[in-house]
């Protein structure tokens, strides 16, 4: 993620660090004091709520601990077991499917839609309507998603009016696909919006020139839209990575009743952590093991973000 920042910070200050070290003028010292004052509340709260607990969890991942009795040292054994645990591996695969397959659909559809919505009538209305699932509670959406697609649900009822036999959308073979589809539905609007606004920043002049040169719709997309909204897209891709790895509420409420875990078919890494700690009927409280899996996901997140930045980096396009 640090690469993200390089564009943002120090755009006008080449090497502030070095200047400060050689000679701290009174002005610089005063600026440093103001700096500390401004960032201190955020830093303190950040440390209290996020950093402290994360460090604590990294430590706990080396122990066997149920939260009640004293922790037992395990070293890296939790991590070793994780890589042999079929439930974890399945959760990991599911997470990656949601991330990459879901992500591919969201971005392909997003770009595709965005390129067309740009010139459509009622575009503001379209934008708002597509954005709607983002503001609704994922729990509520997953309830609706279930009511829509269950055997005697609303979709099958409507299909019935067309004379189509009811389909088994939610059978255990299909339920993960439906969960991924639901996730795409819920998330697509946000990324579409971001991409669309990125495309909006492209001066119309370029499209005019492209049309004058006889470029087809696809060519306009390939040679104007795509390169000129690439930066926005890559930030959106990183946001999606975050959301996909954290995804919990929708899957949790979609898969099960409120007091039971959803079936393991749809577990992702977040549900795995929950299942290993609070989720079960008689909760497992395996905090060490669960923390180890969470630490792995945090590492994976770092790796994916770095890779994404590598892949998505392009020659800067001068406008």
């Amino acid at each position: 993620m640090s690469v993200l920042e390089s564009e943002r910070v120090g755009t006008d200050a080449d090497a502030p660090g070095r200047t400060a070290r050689t000679a701290a003028t009174p002005r610089q010292r005063s600026q440093r004091n103001w700096f500390i004052l401004f960032v201190l509340p955020a830093v303190l709260l950040y440390a209290l709520v996020l950093i402290g607990p994360t460090v604590f969890s990294i430590g706990v991942s080396l122990f066997q601990w149920n939260g009640l009795t004293p922790p037992e040292w395990r070293g890296l054994r939790n991590y070793e077991i994780l890589f042999r645990d079929p439930v974890f591996l399945r959760s990991l695969v599911n997470t990656l499917v949601i991330l990459f397959v879901g992500g591919a659909v969201i971005f392909v559809v997003g770009f595709f839609f965005a390129a067309f919505i740009r010139t459509m009538r009622g575009r503001n209305f379209i934008r708002s309507a597509l954005f709607f699932p983002f503001i609704a509670s994922p729990i509520a959406l997953s309830i609706v998603w279930g009511v829509l697609f269950q055997y005697r649900g609303i979709v099958n009822t409507l299909l019935g009016e067309l004379g189509i036999e009811p389909l088994e959308w939610l059978s255990s073979e299909n339920i993960f696909k439906m969960a991924v589809t639901g996730t795409i539905w819920v998330s697509a609007g946000l990324y579409l919006t971001i991409l669309l606004a990125g495309i909006d920043q492209i001066p119309p002049m370029y499209y005019e020139v492209a049309e004058l040169e006889g470029a087809s719709a696809f060519q306009r997309f390939r040679y104007v839209t795509l390169p000129l909204s690439w930066d926005v897209a890559s930030v959106a891709a990183i946001l999606w990575t975050i959301e996909a790895l954290k995804l919990f509420d929708f899957l949790f409420a979609f898969g099960g009743a409120t007091t039971t875990m959803p079936p393991v078919e749809i577990w992702n890494s977040s549900l795995f952590v929950y299942g290993q700690t609070f989720g079960d009927q008689v909760p497992a409280y395996r905090f060490g093991y669960a923390s180890a899996s969470a630490v792995l996901m945090l590492l994976l997140f770092g790796v994916i973000v770095v890779l994404l930045r590598r892949i998505l980096r392009r020659e800067p396009i001068e406008l």
């Binding site: 269950q150 959308w169 939610l170 059978s171």
Partner: peptide, 10 residues
Amino acid sequence: KGYDSSKWPA
């Protein structure tokens, strides 16, 4: 019918 593809308590 549909016992495999419904949401409890359907």
